[in-house]
Design a protein around this nucleic acid. Sequence first.
DNA 1: TATAAAGTCTATACTTGGTATAGAGTCAAC
DNA 2: GTTGACTCTATACCAAGTATAGACTTTATA
Lengths: 129, 129
Amino acid sequence: MKIGDVAKTTGCSIHTIRFYEKKGLLPELKRSSGNYRVYDKGTIEQLLFIKQCRSLDMSIMEVKTLMDSRSRPDQSCSNINTLIAKHLSDVIIRIKELNALKSSLENMASKCDQNKTIRDCGILNYLHT
Amino acid sequence: MKIGDVAKTTGCSIHTIRFYEKKGLLPELKRSSGNYRVYDKGTIEQLLFIKQCRSLDMSIMEVKTLMDSRSRPDQSCSNINTLIAKHLSDVIIRIKELNALKSSLENMASKCDQNKTIRDCGILNYLHT
DNA sequence: TATAAAGTCTATACTTGGTATAGAGTCAAC
DNA sequence: GTTGACTCTATACCAAGTATAGACTTTATA
């Protein structure tokens, strides 16, 4: 399989696939006689794994940690559980932050209606304080 | 005032102040004979305005729009209200996304306890699917 | 078979909102 | 006059890609 086929199959762009390779998320790739990357089913599986992790907002480094773990199947998985717990906690913190932000913005938005001048805009005056 | 004083007063780093200037958020600055930037009270006020907008997660471009508006006090402020409404709506969307993410992560986290091997890790198997 | 089109290659620049560094110049105190 | 603190410009770096240029390879069409 060539990179275009892999892109179609996985939904990752060609650029992104090469980017993941450069970041060390994909193993060393065989090359064709014309220096084209040659992919197999394993790579596609790995890309789907990466994609799923990314859809859960994990960083490339986190994904790399998970993938590296997969190559040591006899080790304890506690570091994986820790990683996910930390990630979840980060998400919860971010949600809290954004909710606070939302309240501030709603409060600010309520300070002005549509029919004022910049000079009298309740929002700008609020921000200016 | 020199940039170090401004940094102390506003809590913005020296780098950040110069960065904002390069981005067009600060007006043309006077320079001393030794080519040092010379600041006045107005600049400090502007930096605090920027800081407050950034604390509300507005982008540099959004802040620039607001600041540009301030120089046209007789215009209608409707574009400002629109900007804030759009920003608020983006925040609300992001909160929804993160809440969905949180559920997925919680679900996944529940698939494993601490005492398994990588091979049997419920989280990795979940992700691998 | 020749040529055109599509695909791939590497390398580089761009995005956001800063942060960090290098190397040079300036200013104040001792 | 020299040390130390401050500032200057220019550049590189971070995440996680996206976009581009220019060269090369393969495939499709004439």
